[in-house]
């Protein structure tokens, strides 16, 4: 097994996903199949090979630090499921 039930539960917690027991069961099998397939990459010796992030080798992009027109507060808050006109409202963090 590449991945256990317990690991799936751990990763789900990291990803902020709540899984039902039968989902954990099914996903453990599916993830194991996929990770076993991915182990195919171990056939290749990549010791001296650099990683690719941007395929044309682009680096950082700089621009002048200028003020541009941006969303106003009303627009920025418009899609908030709970907002009070000034901020997004969320459940209490500190009890």
């Amino acid at each position: 097994m590449k991945i256990t039930r317990k690991e799936v539960e751990h990763v789900a917690r990291l990803a902020r996903l709540e899984l039902q027991p039968e989902e954990v069961e099914r996903l453990t099998i599916q993830l194991d199949t996929i990770l076993n397939y991915a182990a195919k990459l171990d056939e290749l010796d990549t010791g001296g090979v650099a990683v690719t992030t941007h395929t044309q080798g682009a680096g950082n992009v700089f621009r002048e630090d200028l003020v541009h027109e941006a969303l106003n507060r009303e627009q920025a808050l418009a899609n908030g499921p709970d907002q009070n006109g000034e901020a997004f409202v969320v459940p209490r963090i500190i009890s």
Binding site: A38, L41, L44, T46, V49, A50, V51, T52
Partner: peptide, 12 residues
Amino acid sequence: YKKASRVRTLIR
């Protein structure tokens, strides 16, 4: 992830 990103270089 890193292994895959290296093999990506080989593919490119």
